[in-house]
Design a binder for these strands. Structure first.
Length: 111
DNA sequence: CCAGTGACGGCTA
DNA sequence: TTAGCCGCCACTG
């Protein structure tokens, strides 16, 4: 019945919802935290499925370069950047400014 | 059933 | 240093 991936999807939602405002994380970080190290793509796939869901700040999840690669999948291509700026995250050229400084590692911060 | 694609990441040239 | 390829797993055609 409940496949492992189903649990994986739910885990991704839980972690993303735990991301504090003004902070961002990467797909690989979440994947590694869930034990799917190397399967960062699955995290992105899970976020796509999270689109119709509310309370999932997927805009706080970017790739390891801090690039808003998934903005195209949002309601609007500028929604992701606009939302991040609204939380105090500076975004320039579709990239998070001081990404390393705002980076939120679940395996370290969430503990 | 097989091949291509994709919100990524790490390695090699 | 930058650019390109492969590997991961799931979905679509």
């Amino acid at each position: 019945m409940k496949s492992t991936k189903e649990n994986f999807f739910q885990n991704v939602y839980e972690v993303v919802k735990l991301i504090p405002p003004g902070r961002v994380t990467s797909y690989g970080a979440i994947a590694g935290y869930l034990g799917a190290k190397g399967s960062a793509r699955m995290v992105g796939w899970a976020l796509i499925a999270s689109q119709p869901f509310t309370g999932i700040p997927a805009h706080r999840v970017v790739n390891r370069n801090g690039l808003l690669t998934g903005k195209q999948h949002f309601e609007a291509a500028n929604a992701m950047q606009e939302r991040l700026e609204q939380e105090g995250v500076q975004v320039e050229n579709d990239r998070v400014v001081a990404f390393e400084q705002l980076f939120w590692d679940p395996s370290k911060e969430l503990l």
